[in-house]
Design a protein around this nucleic acid. Structure first.
Length: 582
RNA sequence: UGCCUCAUGGUGUAAUGGUAGCACAAGUGACUCUGAAUCACUUUGUCUAGGUUCGAAUCCUGGUGAGGCAGCCA
């Protein structure tokens, strides 16, 4: 368990849960994460997942994963599968024990561990029959009616926030007529949009969501989970609170935009015979991240227009995208806790996320050597057939991670950036006549440069101080710079994808302009890199740091002799920052 | 100009009537076989005007600013 996972955060929602428990309002804390399966989960959802699962875990409760699938025209099994996978990946090793799925084959929702055979997430659509019965109960109580207004008329009658609504002419139908019409709606006698079921509340309410809100609409459409069983579907407000009630949710946590819906949430549960204690809704501010867009619509647009390679493109703020990029789940969780939970709608600096990622990776990523943009170095005082193995540490400050051997020879490759003919002040890498240490190896001096026809330096002729090898006689000689390298004949080739922020401005969707105009044209650069041979055995279980370069993760589609690596994130670089300013 | 919500350094967050703290970012220095990491230090804040109180970021009133709400979406 990481430090982040063991420090219990505190916020206004946890304070409420804590107080409710102390007051004996609930015997057990039951939260839920209720995504609609109409898109992929992103880091904003990760905040909500960490909140709901975190609370369940801290208060010895459980958390249901529930598909909020009441709109058959927008949802798909593709999304329920990705959502289920992403949630489990995010909480693995941290909150698996509080995650609850639906017991297979049970008519009543019964929570089981996902490990149980046949277990699957909860579905709001599993409650359609029960929701229907609740609707009938409301009709019988004279608190709901069938309305024949067209969609346009319904809008007009609703009025505006500062203008009272007008009651529907169908508002006072008899209970018998409502029952009959609702049954015929269910039986499929009417076309889409012909009639709705509405709650009878208050058309003059200051809160527009209380102006006889729609409970059911007609949709002759196949549902991804319930098939063709239904042609009427409940709307969010009716389905959500009752799903919470059916599952015995104690604290229903959602984002700020549902604040105005809370009176309706409460109205429905108070006007129906539901088990007590009933759930209550609490709202927190959704995550906004700088240099990022978060809305499903915009992410969908990036995918559809081919601006990225897919939902799991490593530049996407989706959970699957970040996973593919190499962001560890622990880093995402640590981030979620570090930003807190409030009702203030602000923008979190993406640097906070990057910091969480770097902190975790610095502690866990295996160190390797690799050159992205090669410059030849020939060690003229070494014989052509010189070959030796140099020991290299896998993880500084963690001897248990052991070490490995790196081949070393007369012909090396170093980073082009690590040599300058006419360096600026304080440049302490290689220069003509200068010395530098090869990481884990010798100190070398640059004696001469070789140029091509255009005058570009294509090779450095150097001599190695043979006593300066790590552990050798003059190994303690001070040279200001240490650079990474690979042995040219031994290096493996790899495609390395260098990712940067997808957008070049802090708030790409601010203002009225098109967010696409702020796409960073350099968000992906691909290079053919040269890596130390041990990286041929790279796996998806490990993350790597190419020393002095950044953190890298094997791409999930990488295969064969020439692997593909994604740069998760660069190392902090106070040198180029300083020179850029100068 | 209806209703709901929010306002603490550049950013995010803590302080629940009693010394305004933390993290990120930024900067300076030390150290360094990663210009990373680490360590030390520094800069920057309670939207505003009143009121209550011995004492207010906190409670009250007014103002200002920001966000949300008028889908048969969630």
């Amino acid at each position: 368990m990481t430090t982040a996972d063991s420090v219990p955060p505190s916020d206004f929602i946890r304070d409420i849960v804590s107080a409710d428990l102390a007051a004996g309002k609930h015997s057990q804390v039951v939260t839920r994460f209720p995504p609609e399966p109409n898109g992929y989960l992103h880091i904003g959802h990760a905040k909500s997942i960490c909140l709901n699962f975190g609370i369940a875990r801290e208060f010895n409760g459980v958390c249901h994963l529930r598909m909020d699938d009441t709109n058959p025209t927008k949802e798909d099994v593709e999304y329920v599968e990705s959502i289920t996978e992403d949630v489990q990946w995010l909480i693995r090793g941290w909150a698996d024990h509080v995650l609850r799925f639906k017991k297979p084959g049970s008519g009543r929702p019964e929570a089981v561990s996902p490990a149980e055979a046949g277990a699957e997430p909860f579905y709001a659509s599993d409650y359609f029959e029960r929701l229907h019965d609740y609707a009938v109960e409301l009709i019988k109580a004279g608190k709901a009616y069938v309305c024949d207004l067209t969609p346009e008329e319904t809008d007009r009658y609703r009025g505006a926030p500062d203008k009272e609504g007008i009651p529907s002419p169908y508002r006072d139908r008899s209970v018998e007529e409502n029952l009959d019409l609702f049954a015929r709606m269910r039986a499929g006698e009417f076309p889409d949009g012909a009639r709705t079921l509405r709650a009878k509340i208050d058309m003059a309410s200051r809160n527009v969501w209380l102006r006889d809100p729609l409970l059911y609409r007609i949709r002759h459409a196949e549902h991804h989970h319930s098939g063709r069983q239904w042609c009427i579907y409940p709307l969010y407000d009716f389905a959500h609170c009752l799903s919470d009630s059916v599952e015995g949710i104690s604290h229903s946590i959602c984002t700020l935009e549902f604040e105005v819906h809370r009176p309706l949430y409460d109205w429905i549960l108070e006007n129906l015979q539901v088990p007590q204690p009933r759930p209550h809704q609490y709202e927190f501010a959704r995550l906004n991240l700088s240099y990022t867009v978060m809305s499903k619509r915009k992410l969908m647009q990036l995918v559809r227009e081919g601006r990225v390679s897919g939902w799991d493109d490593p530049r996407m703020p989706t959970i699957c995208g970040m996973r593919r990029r190499g962001v560890p789940a622990e880093a995402l969780r640590q981030f979620a806790f570090s930003i807190g939970v409030t009702k203030y709608n602000g923008v979190t600096d993406v640097a906070v996320l990057e910091h969480s990622i770097r902190t975790h990776l610095n502690q866990h990523a295996l160190r390797r050597l690799g050159v992205l943009r090669p410059l030849k170095v020939t060690l003229t005082n070494l014989p052509e057939n010189h070959s030796e193995q140099l020991a290299a540490i896998n993880l500084p400050d963690n001897p248990e991670a052991g070490s490995r051997l790196i081949p070393f020879s007369r012909h090396l490759l170093i980073e082009q950036d690590d040599f300058m003919e006419i360096p600026p002040p304080k440049f302490f890498r290689l220069r003509p006549g200068g010395e530098v240490r090869l990481k884990y190896g010798y100190i070398i001096r640059c004696d001469d440069v070789v140029r091509d026809a255009s005058g570009t330096v294509v090779e450095l002729l150097c001599t190695a101080d043979l006593d300066s090898k790590t552990g050798g006689a003059t190994s303690n000689r001070k040279v200001k710079g240490t650079i990474h390298w690979v042995s040219a004949p031994d290096a493996i080739r790899a495609q390395v994808r260098l990712y940067e922020r997808l957008f070049s401005v802090p708030e790409p969707d601010a203002g009225d302009g098109n967010f696409l105009q702020h796409l960073n044209p350099d968000s992906l650069q691909t290079v053919e890199a040269f890596l130390e041979p041990s990286l041929a055995a790279a796996t998806l279980e490990e993350r790597y740091q190419l020393e002095r370069v950044g953190y890298f993760y094997l791409d999930k589609e990488s295969q064969g002799q020439n692997p593909v690596f994604n740069r998760t994130i660069s190392l902090k670089d106070s040198w180029s920052k300083g020179t850029a300013k100068a």
